[in-house]
Design a protein around this nucleic acid. Structure first.
Lengths: 368, 368
DNA sequence: CCGTATTTGTTCGTATGTATT
DNA sequence: CAATACATACGAACAAATACG
């Protein structure tokens, strides 16, 4: 009772038709092939076709008229000027999120827009559901923080649907490689980690352990900056000195592997962490191992979050202008909504990082 | 193809079942006869029965479980069906807000709702604008954290408008006295501050300075608990030992007045602060005055926010189940949307506080 | 206006799959 | 394991609305 995709026939037919409608292959008001045509096309019974169609009718994608045919609903076309915009973030944490939203909100409220909020938990499937949800509602624009931005995007068709409906959207923090040309506000993460690593090198560190996230753009870029600084500093890049982690194991792997390296006796005098959160956990772990920060090991964070300023050891980190980022994204989206051409855009799209020096790093006395 | 009543078989069967549900002959949660039983009862084919049932399922009257049966829904059909709900908070800070929203979001998303977010900056005028905005949009319900909940409410007419449009709403954190009977999720702030103050008294403190917010319910309630504990402990309540502040001067007044009291030489061995944020600032100020916490002065916070755990001194505070509060508010709102009567409500509305003891308080040696 | 073909709507019968008890 | 109940699927027939020559 299952087809090759492991789903019910009526369900996959329904999905296929829905995708065509969402993408615009079937346009509002257009007549669908008759039930009998669909029967021969899909090689299923009429009953199965009718089941698929009835779902789409219930969801409002289709309507049918007795004796005439089945048609794509008009109501699926979006009325502009709902004065709503959507925001999709990865997490609703107390880490970056609040100030980001604050920045978006202040600009958007000022311009008379309301914000609809969704989050993905950094899951692609949830992102797809959120996008479909927003596509079915009336929004004038969308700000999206991509989920797992470094992996190939499965949701391209949904973004293409946004294009088709002329709903502008702006990426923040990261961008899918398949959608590189879309408007986007990024932090120069490569440069940021470069500054941090260079700073560590200048303090005389020789064995800098890197801890980076493998499944988002930020992680890859920060790693790049780390490598660049090492090479400029004349130190060989050693893959053994880098710990990679993913969203799923972020709470355990980084700290455990740092501990492992130390137990193995790997020489290290500094740890460059993916962000403040990881840095805070690493510092706690080091202290529990009776390793002092910064006296024995220097640690750097990233983002300049509250943790960087309110932890046991105040961290050297990179400023993350969270609120500004939100405000800039909002302004860029407003430009898109107002069809301001690229040349006239007044929104800077690459934010330059700024090194914040606090007390988590200390000069090493280098003996030769 | 018409029966004696001039209607389709499936249609009249559907109507007959619907009438039974509406009348109460079939009660919520009750199991319907199996499809085959209905087949023999109505003398129609199983397909016809399924067609009738599927309509009622789509309208939300019924749901069916594979292998178990078909059941009458708990929920009644909602007329408004935008599947949007509004949330109005006072601030979008990284203090309470993120986890609160997280709790609301997880419940609401699970039930197919989208969240529209607005914040007031604790301003009544902004709250009025937000309410008007939501009234003009299509929302099925509203969760509101009142702004300056202790002052007389100027926006009653807007809440009455919500009543008129039958848009249910739920208050969190506080409630306007004029709207006391409305559904609401509160923390027992009086009891919370009572626990803290009692704890301080048990540690032998005799001069407990209170710092409270004057313009919201929480501040007033916490002050009440503070007074209650003092009186039970046999200490006279001294208004001079309480610092009141408002939203507008929250960033400066509390710390300045604490400093002032100390310079005046007012004897004090403990400070009970309105929340962790104030406590953190007070601790910083005390340390800058070379007063040690907790050796010289004990300090308590409130909310058990990240600050309580990640500051220079880990604070004794009251747990604020932020995420749970959000989830409970969301569930209460769903009950309102589904017209669940008060007696059948399964949402607790007063959250009991829990004392979290950390290192910001220390026993005093009392000499007599 | 009529007749025919097309298209959706309703109904029945039958068989098999799968979850629950 | 068997019985029960819902889920999916195919086939067939006829009704009712519509389109078109």
């Amino acid at each position: 009772m299952v087809n090759e995709k492991g789903k019910m026939k009526y369900f996959s037919i329904m999905e296929e038709l829905k995708a065509k409608i969402v993408k615009g292959d079937i346009k509002p008001g257009e007549k669908l092939p008759s039930e009998n045509e669909l029967v021969t096309r899909y090689q299923v019974s009429r009953h199965t076709i009718r089941k698929a169609l009835s779902i789409l009718q219930n969801e409002g994608y289709l309507y049918s008229e007795h004796g005439k045919g089945t048609f794509c609903s008009e109501r699926m076309r979006h009325q502009k000027n709902s004065k709503n915009i959507g925001v999709i973030t990865t997490y609703i944490s107390d880490y970056i999120f609040p100030r980001l939203i604050q920045g978006i909100d202040s600009v958007m409220t000022e311009n008379g827009y309301s914000i609809m909020l969704k989050n993905t938990g950094n899951s692609r499937d949830k992102e797809a559901r959120d996008l479909e949800e927003f596509l079915s509602k009336d929004i004038d624009g969308l700000i999206i923080e991509p989920s797992k931005s470094q992996l190939a995007c499965k949701n391209i068709h949904l973004y293409e649907a946004l294009d088709q409906y002329q709903i502008p959207y702006v990426f923040i923090q990261g961008i899918y490689t398949e959608l590189k040309d879309r408007p986007c506000i990024l932090l120069d993460d490569c440069q940021g980690e470069y500054l941090l690593t260079k700073y560590l090198l200048e303090l005389g560190h020789k064995h800098i352990l890197g801890v980076f996230k493998a499944d988002d753009r930020q992680g890859i870029q920060r790693h790049k900056g780390y490598v660049k600084a090492l090479q400029e500093g004349g130190l060989a890049y050693d893959p053994e000195m880098v710990i990679w982690f993913h969203t799923e194991d972020r709470r355990t792997k980084p700290v455990l592997e740092v501990e492992e390296k130390i137990r193995q006796g790997v020489p290290l005098d500094a740890i460059a962490c993916y962000n403040d959160q990881i840095a805070a956990e690493v510092i706690k772990k080091l202290q529990s191992l009776n390793i002092r920060v910064p006296e024995d090991v220097s640690v750097t964070g990233y983002d300049n979050s509250y943790m960087a300023e309110n932890s046991i050891v105040n961290m050297t980190t990179i400023a993350h202008p969270q609120e500004q980022l939100g405000a800039m994204a909002a302004e860029l989206l407003l430009e898109q909504i107002r069809h301001v051409p690229r040349e006239e855009s007044r929104v800077e799209r690459l934010i330059q990082p700024e090194l914040i020096v606090r007390e988590s790093c200390m000069r090493r006395n280098v003996r030769i």
